[in-house]
Design a protein around this nucleic acid. Structure first.
Length: 435
RNA sequence: GUGGCCGUAGCUCAGUUGGUUAGAGCGCCAGGUUGUGGCCCUGGAGGUCGGGGGUUCAAGUCCCCUCGGUCACCCCA
């Protein structure tokens, strides 16, 4: 057994699996940048209060945060989600609005690991600050939808809801409180004592008692004010206009307290595991102010990239086997090594993807490495070729017995290019699935 | 934080009611082919049986503890 291993709930992502991550991140970046979003790279730890502002009553900040004191006595925490950092950056730098940003970064939560749940997971997300136009809500949702579609996922479902705003939410809360108060003895053990703390959370409880007791509970949707109702209607119209299927789920309550108005969640019907939420988000029109900035509406989503890949596994898309080899040529030299050293360097300078064998191994052994590398061509340099100033080119995908060609060193790069363009499948893994 | 299941080679696993030097497939390395991969054949390297303690003449096998993995609850991405 190895002496050291990755901490609980974390893992190494190694080749060839990591190639899927490169592709996934490239897809995400391409889609959101094409929509005018700019990358924000923020620290992965912040003043602990930055994250506490996203919701004192949520498990994420209450009991799952990686908190620590640094040597200067500062109270810091590892980022448990993406939005708080972006909002903090907005308040700190006051960029012009609307500020459209994206990020792809790890988040950390101290939880028991299980399928689709890690202590370090990776989220890709976008945030738009400075406009409450409902068409932005539609844009944000549509970009997430497009991302899932771009990786080939077909079994993704979208749920939307509106949680109201500072005007209508308190009214609804009070109605729900009154409703729960009348039936508190029917709730589950936990909520019988805690329903007052956060009444909305009771609607999210999966215990049969709570589900039954709240079956005909009032919905926020029935309490939307004159500002929120048309906002939500416009969002639904927009989704319909773009052909994005959705269901309104009046019981959708997300795990962070900052949400207002539009909230949404993506789930995979393909995922067998209990963790089938791929991502979610919503509006947080009060959060910037809460963080000490000017009143500024905002909306965004976070997508779990780890889970997106799990969903890809279950749907059979983004398969590692479909990723093409990354190398154009593999250099085999059993004439001392000068040729491998010099030619590999020249090939790379010319923009070709090239690797070689080291250690002066036998021709057979080096060819074996060439085969496994997945390269299209092998360049063979033996004493005969050196003497003639030539290099042998072997097509590694040709049928056995296919004769190899010998070219002068001066003509080598042109000849390789000629052979590569004649076979489109030699394009690398990223660009091959990029279209 | 709670519970179920599981820890034997790099990987996937076998190991008969406890009984000699712990096995296979894949992978890796080498040879068969004094300069040619993929198929085949042969050989080799690689394991304190997760760790500690206990029972026993004898423990990979039984018991306890512990660490780790995994799945579920909870929560969420």
């Amino acid at each position: 057994m190895a002496e050291f291993r990755t901490p609980i709930g974390t893992r190494d992502i190694l080749p060839p699996e990591s190639a899927r991550w490169e592709l996934l991140l490239a897809r995400f970046a391409r889609i959101v940048e094409a929509a005018g979003y700019g990358l924000v790279i923020s620290p992965m730890f912040e003043d602990v209060e930055v994250f506490q502002r996203v919701g004192e009553s949520t498990d994420v900040v209450r009991k799952e945060m990686y908190q620590f004191t640094d040597k200067g006595g500062r109270e810091l925490a590892l980022r448990p989600e993406g939005t708080a950092s972006i909002v903090r950056a907005f308040v700190q730098h006051r960029p012009p609005t609307p500020w459209k940003t994206w990020y792809a970064a790890p988040s950390f939560r101290y939880e028991r690991a299980q399928a689709g749940r890690y202590r370090q997971h990776h989220q890709g997300g976008i945030e738009v600050l400075g406009t409450d136009d409902p068409d932005v809500d539609v844009e944000v949702i549509a970009l997430a939808w497009e991302f899932f579609a771009s990786v080939g996922l077909r079994l993704v479902t979208l749920k939307v809801n509106s949680l109201g705003d500072a005007t209508c939410r308190p009214v609804y809360r009070e109605a729900l409180r009154a409703f729960l108060e009348a039936r508190q003895d029917q709730l589950c053990d936990e909520h019988r004592t805690r329903w007052e703390e956060n009444p909305l959370r009771v609607l999210d409880c999966k215990k049969p008692e709570c589900v039954a007791a709240t079956a005909d509970a009032p919905h926020q949707l029935d309490f939307l004010c004159d500002a929120c109702a048309p906002h939500f209607a416009r969002v639904k119209d927009g989704l319909a206009a773009l052909g994005i299927p959705y269901v309104v789920d009046a019981r959708l309550v997300r795990g962070l307290d900052y949400y207002t108005r539009t909230t949404f969640e993506f789930a995979s019907r393909a995922l067998e595991s209990a963790q089938n939420a791929l991502g979610g988000g919503g509006r947080y029109d009060g959060l910037v102010e809460e963080m000490g900035g000017p009143p500024t509406p905002g909306i965004g989503f976070g997508i779990g990239l780890d889970r997106t890949l799990l969903a890809c596994n279950d749907e059979g898309v983004m398969r590692i086997e479909d990723l093409s080899p990354r190398l154009d040529v593999f250099v085999v030299d059993f004439a001392g090594g000068d040729g491998a050293r010099d030619i590999t360097f020249r090939l790379r300078s010319a923009g070709l993807r090239a690797d070689r064998a080291f250690g002066g191994r036998s021709p057979k052994s080096q060819l074996k490495s060439a085969d496994r590398s997945g390269a299209r061509l092998a360049l063979i340099i033996g004493p005969d070729e050196v003497a003639a100033g030539q290099v042998a080119i072997k097509d590694l995908r040709a049928e056995p017995g296919t004769p190899q060609h010998v070219v002068a060193r001066d003509a080598l790069i042109d000849e390789i290019r000629r052979r590569l363009v004649s076979d489109a499948s030699t394009v690398g893994p990223v660009s091959n699935l990029e279209s």
